[in-house]
Design a protein around this nucleic acid. Structure first.
Lengths: 172, 172
DNA sequence: CGGTGGAATGTTATAAGATCACATGGGGGT
DNA sequence: ACCCCCATGTGATCTTATAACATTCCACCG
């Protein structure tokens, strides 16, 4: 298993955990990766879509569609909900952004380009979200699905709890 | 369709394991179990709460809060959203009903009384929902959480795909 | 170069989901 | 009987999401 990169190292490494990292590099890296991927696959990485992804990368946390919409308005894009939802649909469909069902909110993917079944850890105190990998189809759920004849196409795996920072504050 | 339903049997519907079953017995059993559990623990299993659970058990599928509210209204209960949401809160808090985050909807628990980390299989064609057990903290997610210092309190595990019945129809 | 068609964007309106705040009622425990 | 807590009822409001339709952009073909 990948023992995680130590905090403080040269992190173009996206936030796997709740650690600090070189955020500008992280944003640039992700934007670049998405741009490349769109070029490769003939997807149109338009200004609204780019702007939404940028916002999510910069904020580095889960944002509601309407918070995103506010920023789009300020940036001179359309200000009606479909503008945000359509951009988000595109980004989600292509795996550049994930929806956190539990929060009805969205986060930039921490591993753009890699195909993956994401799992999330959501801090119920500060709402921070960290992305991890999951393999739900390999465990009890996969077995149940096979037994039932259910074809899994997509999984939502979200763990709610307390992140290290908030746990520390609570104790302190 | 329900080709192997027994003639004349009480309603047997496709369902929770995506299988057919004696639904009246299933409802009665679950209601009894919940009633017993409430008595045991000093919880107030009031008429609204009972009605909501009954509805969910009878329908045997995921229902939105407003669909539930409609039925409450018809049954002579209050007709404002908080009526439904409060009953649902009670049922969810006590594990008698689960919320399907992906659908913003609710299903009766298939294993009332057993403490469990539920996982769900959701058919994207017919919206049928089956409950299974999961052990998300034991797999990759659990490892990631430990590595990150994240304390998991609760998990949402939902698989989206195609149920056997719908798969069969599609191949048709 | 001009036309054409599909995708993307913009806008209005409305549906669906969830919560706040406050008033009322019912049942135990002293 | 009284009080208090909990549950219920109600109105208003807030957030999240989609339907429907007009307009614009752009790649592609002739």
């Amino acid at each position: 298993m990948t023992s995680d990169a130590q905090p403080g190292a040269t992190e173009t490494e996206p936030s796997l955990g709740f650690q600090h990292h070189d955020h500008r590099a992280c944003v640039d890296h992700a934007l670049g990766a998405v741009e490349a991927r769109c070029a490769e696959e003939g997807l149109r990485f338009t200004p609204v879509r780019r702007k939404v992804l940028e916002l999510l990368l910069k904020e580095h946390k889960a944002m509601g569609a309407y918070a995103i919409l506010d920023e789009l308005r300020e940036a001179g894009f359309g200000s009606q909900p479909p503008v945000a939802y359509r951009a988000l649909d595109f980004l989600v469909d292509n795996g550049f952004v994930h929806k956190i069902e539990r929060l009805n909110a969205f986060v930039a993917c921490a591993h753009p380009g890699e195909s993956h079944a994401p799992a999330f850890m959501i801090c119920r105190v500060c709402d921070a979200v960290a992305e991890a990998h999951s393999a739900p189809a390999k465990g009890a759920l996969g077995a149940a699905a096979r037994a039932a004849g259910f074809q899994i196409e997509r999984t939502v795996v979200e763990a709610e709890g307390v992140c290290p920072a908030c746990a520390e504050k609570a104790e302190g």
